[in-house]
Simulated scan of single mutants.
Amino acid sequence: MEENSANFAIKRIYDPPGDADGYRVLVDRLWPRGVSKERAQLDLWLKEVAPSGPLRTEFAHMQERFEDFRSAYEAELADNPAVETLRRIGTEHARVTLLFGARDVETNHARVLLEFLQRGGR
Results as ranks from 00 to 15, higher is better:
L114N: 05
F59K: 09
L99K: 07
R29S: 09
E92I: 00
A78C: 10
E74S: 00
A6M: 10
K47M: 09
P17Q: 07
F66Q: 02
T107S: 12
P17T: 08
A110I: 11
D19A: 14
G90I: 02
R12C: 05
E38H: 10
N108I: 05
L117A: 04
T97I: 09
K11I: 02
R87T: 04
G34N: 03
N7F: 01
T57R: 14
G121S: 02
N7C: 13
P16M: 08
F69I: 13
P51F: 07
G120M: 01
L117K: 00
R103N: 14
V96D: 03
F8M: 02
R65F: 13
G22Q: 05
E67P: 00
M1R: 13
E48K: 11
W45L: 01
D43L: 01
K47H: 12
S36F: 07
E58K: 14
Q118S: 04
D15I: 00
R122V: 09
I89H: 04
R119P: 03
D79K: 15
D28Q: 03
I10E: 04
A72N: 12
V112F: 03
N4G: 07
P81C: 03
R12A: 04
I89N: 06
R95N: 10
A75M: 10
R111E: 13
V35P: 00
R88W: 11
H61Q: 12
F59G: 11
A50C: 06
D68P: 02
A50K: 01
A94F: 08
Q118W: 03
D68F: 11
S52H: 08
E64Q: 14
A9H: 13
L113I: 06
I89F: 07
F8V: 05
